[in-house]
């Protein structure tokens, strides 16, 4: 009951784009090169999502992410389809949870093909776990300061006298 008539929701036409129709092992096989080649779009989208905390305001960025992903996989299909399929098949069949470790040989073949055809290097294995600085053209959101209450208790004036406590400290252990 949080979505009222006043809540603006985008129409279905705005939301319908061609989606990435790929399965998990295929996405995992292409994940590293994909993340590297679509790094700008991904960072822009995630920054938008984290800043606004509102899926409606980041639709354009999301569409850019999806189209970049589609372009990447189209390029892979055009150039390295066999190597990529081998690698994805290996990831799918070699372990129950699609580990990268058992598929280093097919991965090396795929990496070489991508390097030769698309000029993309495979990023280091912990590249996406590191902290990266993203320079966005979008202006930063204003920072919300601490709340100011008009009826708060006014403090002492700065010239007020502060005599020592009449009966000492009330804290018994350190009199």
């Amino acid at each position: 009951m949080t979505i009222t008539e006043a809540t603006e929701l985008p129409t279905d036409e705005e939301l319908t784009v061609q989606e990435v129709n790929l399965s998990g092992p295929v996405l995992k096989a292409g994940a590293f090169h994909l993340g590297k080649s679509c790094e700008y779009e991904n960072n822009e989208f995630i920054l938008c999502r984290r800043e606004f905390k509102d899926p409606r305001k980041c639709l354009q960025e999301g569409k850019a992410v999806t189209s970049c992903t589609l372009n990447f996989f189209r390029q892979i299909k055009k150039t390295c389809a066999d190597e990529f399929t081998q690698y994805a098949y290996c990831l799918d069949k070699s372990s129950p949870d699609q580990q990268y470790t058992p598929c280093r040989k097919t991965q090396a073949v795929f990496d070489k093909c991508v390097k030769d055809n698309l000029g993309l290097d495979r990023p280091p294995f912990d590249y996406f776990n590191r902290v990266h600085v993203h320079k966005s053209p979008r202006p930063a959101l204003p920072v919300e300061g601490p709340a100011v209450y008009p009826d708060a208790t006014p403090g002492l004036p700065p010239t007020a006298e502060t005599p020592p406590a009449k009966y000492g400290s009330r804290f018994l252990f350190f009199w």
Partner: peptide, 29 residues
């Protein structure tokens, strides 16, 4: 090994999130 698996998941996370957002908003409507 686990770091690499996590990195791979993080790399495809924006794409999955974008797709999920669109489906989510459609369902809200």
């Amino acid at each position: 090994r686990e770091l690499e698996v996590k990195g791979g998941s993080l790399a495809i996370y924006p794409m999955l999130l974008a797709e999920r957002d669109r489906a989510f908003l459609k369902q809200l409507r």
